[in-house]
Design a protein around this nucleic acid. Structure first.
Lengths: 232, 232
DNA sequence: CAGTGGTCTAGACCACAGC
DNA sequence: CTGTGGTCTAGACCACTGC
């Protein structure tokens, strides 16, 4: 069991930061000083510092030194997949509608296109154990190679629908999460008879050039979804 | 304007991945081969590859090579601060209650403590422009140095309440996000007279040793909050 | 066995801070 | 001017993979 020297450097400095010995804004001793302290070459020291910087512990100012960073207390990582979340996983989908429409002003604005441009609409219901748990609407700009065959659309995730038009690596995405009272149509589609809110998740996909490629809105029954986040 | 060699390596390989020339699972040419191609030393090549790995583009298998990674399409970054979000910012708070209680079974379980251990409860209302927008409850394990002076508690964020007990760097945090119908007490506290759902955000804070330090539950009026997430 | 990535060194030159 | 971090080199040895 060999522990690389740079890992020892990382642990040594991280311990000082976690324990409060080094506070945000404090300077870390210079790289040459660390070289002497750890008996290591400068490249090895710098590898350790690079890891601390990557993890948000420190930052550097050329010509001045390395410093302890103020942690971002508001940053969380959320894993969101419309087809599966922490308390529920979709096992069946029903395709309600696939259509070509002219967008209204709000949609055209959201997708940054003219209201005369065609947009594909896909409406689906997601089921778990036979119960409808979400109503899903997607708006896609048409691109060559896009799946418009029902079989391909029915079980696809948003990213998957666009993966044939754009390499998925190049996709940037945005989420908007909010709570809403269901309207009569959604109550009917999701078998909601009593007071039950919706958790709505809007997903917008962008090309590498930051052009909107599609908008997806998923209306989850409030009792079938929880989103989880973690810091780190 | 000098572009470092490792940046050129990063851009060259990233372009191949973004454009689909290199697909997930594909091997990247060996480091020695890249050395010849870019006329650079191996350490420089490896610095470029380290950046691509940090950004989730590639991974390496010792003895085999570097490979293109399948992107995690479900990962988002969310910035959450109970006092300010994308459509609203709290400008006034009212402290309803500060108390020492014995936790019920559910709370004791959540905080991983005995039901005979004391817990601090803090209940507050958050206001924006004079209107109540959120009902906030926090449960904290008592620690020496913890603020129990009203003045210190009233406007504090969850992390701030614990920052005197633990260096904030060492805190790990979890979020749970869901939609809920308000009960009569919350309707009354938040001036809700018609049908309006709550967006509920639970926040749990852990020490470096993964021991729960506190649980916070914030009930937002559905019309006063949207959470935003972004990929990358 | 040869080829791969992982670690590490002991130098070098540069741009920049601050005195 | 000295000291700092940023970049880069040309080697080295290691453990591992696959033939």
């Amino acid at each position: 069991m060999v522990i690389p020297v740079y890992t020892q450097i990382v642990e040594s400095i991280r311990e000082k930061i976690d324990s409060g010995t080094l506070k945000p804004g404090d300077a870390i001793e210079s790289e040459n000083s660390l070289c002497r302290e750890f008996g290591a070459s400068r490249m090895t020291i710098r590898k350790g510092l690079a890891i601390l910087a990557r993890d948000g512990y420190i930052y550097s100012i050329p010509g001045k030194g390395n410093f302890v960073k103020k942690p971002d207390l508001t940053k969380y990582t959320v894993y969101y997949d419309e087809m599966s979340n922490s308390i529920n996983s979709v096992d069946k989908t029903r395709l309600l509608e696939v259509n070509i429409i002219m967008p209204d002003e709000k949609l055209a604005d959201s997708l940054q296109i003219s209201i005369r441009k065609n947009v594909i609409v896909i409406k689906r219901i997601f089921y778990t154990d036979g119960d409808p748990v979400a109503y899903d609407v997607k708006y896609l700009l048409y691109h060559r190679g896009m799946p418009i065959v029902e079989k391909e659309i029915q079980h696809a995730t948003f990213s998957e629908m666009l993966s044939k038009a754009t390499p998925i690596f190049a996709l940037k995405k945005e989420l908007v999460i909010y709570a809403q009272i269901p309207n009569e149509e959604i109550k009917h589609r999701l078998n909601i008879y009593n007071e039950l809110p919706l958790l709505v998740v809007e997903q917008k996909l962008f090309s590498k050039e930051n052009k909107p490629m599609g908008l997806g809105i998923t209306y989850f029954r409030g009792d079938y979804i929880k989103l989880l986040g973690t810091s780190h």
